[in-house]
Design a protein around this nucleic acid. Structure first.
Lengths: 174, 174
DNA sequence: TTGTTTCCCATAAATACCCATGCTATCCCA
DNA sequence: TGGGATAGCATGGGTATTTATGGGAAACAA
């Protein structure tokens, strides 16, 4: 999966090398490339492999057909997604509107988030990181917030407490 | 499937290039073209390939024979659909009434929504996108709304990502 | 005719493809 | 342990191909 952050240059043709580890993560996908869209939540792009798109399609398909949230997601997410194919050296070309949305000028940062990744203007991302760390530090001092993060139960405990997991372990289907 | 948004010019003969990726998506259909109709939900057209039409036929066929909803859908959807064939360079000619319905003047935007796509007046679509993003961003800050969209990772996802968990769920011991 | 549609060709811009270079971390052997 | 060889990665730039789009000739309908 997608892990770690790395910074890359974006050349005059809007090409950028996708981190080798990310390419490795999508090696078994049917197509040689990544799916990316301008995120609605801020000046950054979100992307991933086949599985990443499937997850959005699934989430959207679960909503009622004429639900406003569904229609919005279809247009903003599915309508925004573009498949970016790797060239022979593992680069992709960013569409101009993506570059504008993320305010990328020369350098960008890939931030791995397990099942997906983000692409930021390199400087913006670097600045954000400090704020994010400070916020986390502050928030997790609140026991209630800390508890949301797993509450201290490890897998063993979960297995003992969860009927679903127990069922699974007995070979039943979800 | 149909993904991504792209803007194209509509010339004096009402011709417009269908995005290459969309043509690719219907390559295996029996006919060289797309099916389009003026949507009842707003000033835009909706279209797709063979599969798109079949889906509507199925949905409608499932309704009782003399149901008003069925009759309306038959007339508005099935009656509105036209097959637009590609010319040798991948363009289609939009019927006059389609152009009027969508208020297209010079430029239009194709918005891919997975199984189908929409065609908007380019400016209208650009303006809407800003609103949609803002609405989504706002809505998904509400934990209740966010939860509708899948919430935390489900077990299947976790299983796909973690060898340890997969092993666990298959009954192996830690 | 006159207006409309279909087919064909021309061109410009955007995109994909190819090969070359420099950097760095790693390995191997003295 | 040091230093050169090596492999993988990031990056630069030239060329070919595809795509979008404009316009004209031929076929068709009113």
């Amino acid at each position: 999966m997608f892990l770690s952050t790395s910074e890359h240059g974006v050349d005059a043709k809007n090409r950028v090398s996708v981190p080798a580890g990310y390419r490795e993560a999508v090696r078994n996908d049917p197509c040689e490339g990544i799916y990316v869209f301008p995120h609605f939540d801020g000046p950054y792009l979100e992307g991933g492999g086949e599985h990443f798109v499937q997850q959005y399609r699934l989430d959207i398909a679960r909503l009622p057909r004429y639900d406003q949230l569904r229609k919005d997601l279809e247009e903003a997410v599915l309508g925004g997604i573009r498949r970016l194919d790797f060239d022979s050296t593992g680069r992709v070309t960013l569409p101009r509107e993506f570059i504008e949305h993320a305010g990328i000028d020369g350098r960008c940062a890939f931030v791995g988030c397990d099942g997906h990744f983000q692409i930021w203007n390199a400087q913006t991302q670097a600045d954000r990181l400090g704020d994010i760390r400070a916020r986390l530090s502050r928030r997790l001092q609140d026991p209630a917030e800390a508890a949301r993060l797993g509450g201290g139960a490890d897998l063993q405990t979960l297995m003992g407490n969860s009927e679903t997991l127990s069922a699974l372990l007995k070979g039943e289907k979800l």
